[in-house]
Structures are given as structure tokens and as C-alpha cells.
Design a protein around this nucleic acid. Structure first.
Lengths: 237, 237
DNA sequence: CTTAAATTGTGTCCTTAATACACAAAAATA
DNA sequence: TATTTTTGTGTATTAAGGACACAATTTAAG
């Protein structure tokens, strides 16, 4: 940006836009991909659900703002968080001009505890979202699409699962995210080929059928699987 | 975002962040991918190059702001433009808190004319960028990476070329963007397989060697190649 | 006119990844 | 002990990517 524009700009004219972050917090439960939503507190959107978000503070990094929202709402820290897109249509917020940057987070729904006992917070299956407040349905759709692309390339779905899991559980998560059924043998072959997993030489317990082997994400990928870099895109060489 | 936060927030406290857009305008010339830059007008960055950008106006859609920057600077409209990422570190702008959303544009460098006769504007090979003003080097790198991924999936490189081109010219563009050499036979096979091109049954003219056939992008992809949707990501079925 | 230089145009083999598909073994439950 | 549920596994086919060489066309130079 040119400096002249900034120096000359009147405070009233140019600092009249608020910026917020909105978090699409994904969790996985009952073979469904879910998203954490809160009842909107705007008249215009009475009864509708909205994403968790907040205004960015002037002394706060953008990404830090999204972490803060997550921590304040879920009590979790150390979560997987990814910026997706910034939504900046003039009419998107009824109370004023607010540009929002959307992030998605992947959390283990069972380690999550409501930070405040806010009973307006609920997990919703993403496949059953109706109309939402603001442009939040659009934001969720955009984040889901990005997530679908990401899970094919990067070992990140593990953020939705407990540390130890069976291949069946893993496949269920993929199916929930991608919205398709997968062939078991081909799935296992592909996951094996990725080389993401460590065989723990343990078996599932407390399952009402033949127990499966238990795996965990290899340590080299770090806590969030972010260390697995996408190979540089190369056409032929 | 919660409404309460917005309503209660003091103007001074929360509307203290400016938002800008920065455009990474890519062009192609002399077998090089280039980016249009302007001399920074900040003392702190004297002599350094910076992206074209401007503050977003309160009554202006975010995307409209990036189009405006493009039009004002290049005189072009109807250009390919894609949002990439929003950079929001607190320290990124020395004059104040400015969050910026980065877009990349693809333009035909030869149809481009300087809108103002601003001789501070220049095309720079992306492979030869040194230090830049602000975090702009980082922004260019991020946009280039995104571009590299995009050109493998979507028919968008054509925005960098004249309407009619030979396969050799097309391959040169891919090589410039990806930064690798490609095998001619395999490249042609892959491009053919994509089904993006119409054979015009014409030959190159004024080349100092055997002329090649001339192609154009199929009309179904629209002016910018945006109509070519990525197939939904599916693992096995 | 002949020759040299540059560039176009083309096909096969190999490897890898994705997909479709079926049956036996293990454990729990009735 | 029989039934149910689920795990675990391999092969054959197809599609795409990558390595690789030679003849034909045109211009430019002598």
C-alpha cells in the first residue's frame, strides 16, 4: 500500500472498517463432521446460528485473534488452525462495515469443554446446517471445501481423533469429511502408502465385535500434522 | 462475530485498524514470470520495491478494492484476480496497524499500458526479487506458491498469453511459473489430455525456424478460465 | 542451391496410483 | 454352538506421469 494514502487518509474516512475473525471449529462425533456454533445475538438473525468470532484488537496479530476466540470459547489451546479466506462484501454485517477473516480449526470434540457454561453453544452436523446468520453458511461451505482438499494431502484429520485409533475410525472420519463412502481395502492401501501411521501393536478394547489394530500418527509430523509438507507441484520433470 | 462486541466497542479502540489490498500482478515476457512493482514511498523502505495496493474504502467491497487498484494502475479491466491470503501481523506496517488482503492477478503484459505515466512502476522477474518493502516479499512468495498449484488444475495461464499461441509458448509459460524444465512430448500429451485447447489450423508467423501450430483456449472456459471447475476431491469411491 | 542450425511433431515402454472386487478369520452375543 | 459383526488381506484392470530418440520443416548462411 502506498504510504501517502495512509498518511493523508482521514481517520473517520478510512478507519471506519472493523475487522473480525470467524472460526469454523470442526469436530467429529457419531460418524458425523460437526461444527461448533452459537445462537446469534442480533435481532436481524434471531434464532439463527452463527460462527464463533470476535473483533480483532488493534494490538493483536490477526492469527492471534483467531486463537483467542478458540481459547475463550472452547478452553482449548494448541489446536490446529488454518486461515481460509477473507469475506469483505459491504453488506455482510447489518450493524456496520465488518470484514472478516475465516479460519477453520480441527479439535477433538471429546477433549473439548465449554469454557463458559454457555448453553447457547452447540455442535451441529455440517450436513444439516440450514440458514445461518450473516454470510456464515457461505463461510462454512468455503472452509469445508478447503478442508476436503487439505485432508487428501496432509495428515491433519488426526486432530479430530484421539491419539490412538483404529483404521475403521480413521476411515469413518474421512467419509464424514468427504461425504462419500470409501472402499475399505483401497482406503487402507492408500493410508499405508502415505506412511503417516505407526502401528502400536495394540488392539481396540470394548468394541462389540472383533477388535482392530490401533494406530497413531507418526511423531515426525508434529502435534498437528503441519510438518508434512506438500511436495512442490511439478508437472513432468 | 458477536453483535454485543461490535455495539459496545469504542470507535477509538476497535476501528483503529486499517485494511488494505495488495495486488501481485503477474505478467509473462521473455520467458520469465514477472511482477509489477512500484518504488516504495516510505522513508523506512527507501529504494525498495513494493506491491500495488491501497486502503479499502468503507463503502467498497474488498474484492472491488483490488479491482480498483488494478484498474487505476494498469488501465486494464476484466482481469483474472484471485484472493490468496490476509496478512495481519501487528508489526507489518511501520506507520500503523494495517491488515492487508493479498490478491494475485494474471495479465497479458503486452496489452498493459501504464495508466498514469508513473515511471516508478516496473516489471520485475520474480526469480530476481531481492528484499522488498513491508512483508511484500513474503506476500509474493505466498501468491507464487498458490499460482503454481492453480496452474496445474485450472486453465488460467492463458491470461498471461495472447489469444493465439503455440504449444511451445505455452510450455515456456508453465516452465517460467513452475521454475522447472518440462519434457516437450510429455507436456503436449498432458495438455492435450486436459482438453483445454482448440486447434486453430493456423501456423505461427515471423518465427526464425519451423513454425508451430497455433491454438487458443476453448470458449467454454470463459474469458479467464474460471469456468473450469476442479472435480470434487474424492478418495476412492 | 546447398548446407547447417533451430525447432516442430510424434509414440513406446515403464512405473506408479487408483479402482473394483470376495473370502476367511476373529471376537462378541444370543 | 450358531449367528452376527467386523477385521484383515491381494489381484487384475485402468489411467496418468515420466523417460526417452528421430525424422520433417523452415530459416539463415554461405
Amino acid at each position: 500500500m502506498k504510504n501517502a494514502a495512509l498518511e493523508k487518509s482521514s481517520h473517520l474516512e478510512y478507519f471506519n472498517i472493523a475487522i473480525s475473525v470467524d472460526c469454523v471449529i470442526f469436530g467429529y462425533e457419531d460418524k458425523q463432521l460437526k461444527v461448533l456454533l452459537i445462537k446469534s445475538d442480533l435481532e436481524e438473525f434471531e434464532g439463527m446460528w452463527s460462527l464463533l468470532g470476535d473483533l480483532v484488537r488493534p494490538d493483536e496479530d490477526l492469527e492471534a485473534a483467531s486463537y483467542r476466540v478458540l481459547q475463550e470459547r472452547t478452553g482449548l489451546d494448541d489446536v490446529y488452525l488454518e486461515q481460509v479466506y477473507t469475506f469483505g462484501a459491504t453488506g455482510r454485517h447489518p450493524s456496520g462495515r465488518v470484514i472478516t477473516t475465516a479460519y477453520y480449526a480441527l479439535v477433538n470434540i471429546h477433549t473439548y469443554k465449554l469454557a463458559n457454561t454457555d448453553n447457547e453453544l452447540h455442535w451441529h452436523p455440517v450436513s444439516e446446517l440450514g440458514t445461518m446468520a450473516f454470510d456464515h453458511k457461505n463461510i462454512v461451505d468455503t472452509c469445508l471445501k478447503r478442508l476436503q482438499e487439505a485432508v487428501l494431502e496432509h495428515p491433519i484429520v488426526f486432530n479430530l481423533l484421539p491419539k490412538k485409533f483404529s483404521l475403521r475410525e480413521l476411515q469413518d472420519v474421512y467419509e464424514a469429511i468427504l461425504g462419500v463412502e470409501l472402499d475399505r481395502r483401497n482406503f487402507r492401501k492408500r493410508i499405508t502408502l502415505k506412511g503417516w501411521l505407526d502401528d502400536l501393536n495394540e488392539m481396540e478394547e470394548d468394541v462389540p465385535h472383533r477388535p482392530g489394530k490401533v494406530y497413531c500418527l507418526k511423531e515426525v509430523f508434529g502435534r498437528h500434522g503441519k510438518k508434512a509438507l506438500k511436495p512442490a507441484p511439478v508437472l513432468h520433470s
